[in-house]
Amino acid sequence: MDLSRRTDNVPTLEVKHLSRFFGGVAAVNNVSIAFTPQRITALIGPNGAGKTTLFNLIGGYIAPTSGAILLGTGDLTTRKPWEIARLGIGRLFQDVRVFGKLTTLENIVVAFPNQVGEMFWQPIFQRAQMMKMERPNIERAQALLEFVTLADKANTVAENLSFGQQKLLAIARLLAMDAKILLLDEPASGVHPAVLDSVMDLMSRLVDQGKTIIFIEHNISVVLELAHWVYVLDDSEVVAFGLPDEVIHDRVTREAYLGV
């Protein structure tokens, strides 16, 4: 796998007047954002502001009450999560969700799209072709593990990795599925400082390669260091947006989020 290859032509992900109500209570209310392609956008805001709900809406895990989710000219609003993933939108969950009983290597290999052997008859009737494809897939998976500094953990069962290593693995899995837009839910939280540097370095390298990254984060120094754009959500609405320095020092942000 050529990990230095740039990702080109990343379509713009856009949410338009997106709302989601739970029994009359707004979790996301009339949010409109066009995420700049090949840049890092941070979503910040207090707990319960609607950030993860916005990710769940974009990922297709919950349906919006109103509004639209667009990828380029395509409408994602009613698509299923696996269809959205196949369109190149990858998701890192807050609780990571690696496949615990599979090895680190298997976690990556399984994510490659369009593999021979995925239909149940292929392992029987196209076994030779399947085995032929398996070898380069394993090599690509090993290259990805090296990219995320987990090469020495290839045969470790994923549930035995540290939380930070599981995050790195989950990001590598997004790269294996060839995601062009990465939704990262708190990539820096609960991570050992040494691993945090790896995560931040990885995010920088990915955006240099042309990926679009949207991340939710509470660690303001991480946001200031990485983000090109920042959106502040409070009480299910966007209350501020702009360049990191401007937004962090904005009065509305400080009142809504930082409490000062």
Binding site: Y61, W82, G90, R91, V98, F99, K101, L102, A111
Partner: peptide, 15 residues
Amino acid sequence: KTIREDEIASQAIGK
């Protein structure tokens, strides 16, 4: 096995 381990994560990788 991915479905057995975590169906939501399995969907998230396009299955």
